[in-house]
Structures are given as C-alpha cells and as structure tokens.
Amino acid sequence: MEDVAFWVLAVAAVASGVAVFVVDSMARATFALLASFLCVGAELLLIDLHYLGVLVILMMIMEMLVMAVFMVMYMMNPAGLMPMTMLHNTRGALAISGGAFVVLAAGIFTVPWPERAGRPPRDPTLALGESVMGPKMLVMMVIGIAILATMIATVVLATHRGRYDRDGAP
C-alpha cells in the first residue's frame, strides 16, 4: 500500500514538474510547480516524518503564492492568460540540464552510500528540534533575526510611503 502511494506520488511529482514547462500560462506553471512540491511533502509524510512533511506543504503553498505574484509581475505579458512559453534558449538549456542530469545520475551510482546506522527516533519532531536548536542554537537565532530584518528592510526600501503619509495622501 505504501509502495503504491510512493510511486503514485513520485510519478505525479515528476509529471507536474514536467507540466511546468509544457503549459502555456504562468498561473498554470506556478500551480503545477506547487503540485510537484506538495507531492514531495506527501512523500515525507509517508516515511513518518510528519512534522517535516506538513511543514513542506505549509511553506510551499505560502511560498508559491508569493512567487505567483512575482512570476506574473515579471512576465513579458503580465496578463498571463495569454499564451506564453516557459522555454527560452532551448539548445543551451538542453545542454546544461542534460549535463546536470548526467552528473547527478553518475553520482548516484558512483558514490559509496553509507550503511544505515542506528534506528529512527521515537519522536522525529523532537529529535529534529534538538538537533537544529541544540548545538546550532546561536546560528539559527542569528539567521532568524537576519531573515526578519531583511524582510522588513526590503519592504521599507520598496515602499514609497513614509510613515507620515499614510493612505497615499502626500
């Protein structure tokens, strides 16, 4: 049963990944990519990493919706419902992606994979939290603050409104 679910999700993930480059609308491409990510999140749920799986689903939905805004905004025809193509510089892209695929596939077969050591923890969420926030606490805190500061700074720089001209009044 789990094997069937794994293969269905795996094929769906790859298929919707392919769909990103086949469809002719930016909105469809965005949501095909989202569907691919959601399949990957569901794969994580299958191997009992519940927290990580749900987190991937949560973050990918939010991220892709924000992405949708930017992808549509930077398009050549922002209407988006008009036909467009995701393929540019097809020959170069084919060479690069083919090369990357060959390198990665070769890596799979040539790397000596380590044998499994230990067993999965009883509560993977707790184990994850301790390994991230235990020894790496300082790094994670600094990164968290840095990301928040970057977000606020970007918004402040991007908006033309100051703090005294709210609601667009000059």
Binding site: L34, I57, I61
Partner: peptide
C-alpha cells in the same frame, strides 16, 4: 501545523 497548512490552502 496541519491546521495551519490547510488554512493556508485558502490563499491558493
């Protein structure tokens, strides 16, 4: 987290 993920579906 599951509840949070599902209510974010509303965005989409």
């Amino acid at each position: 987290v599951w509840f949070n993920a599902m209510e974010v579906v509303a965005w989409g």
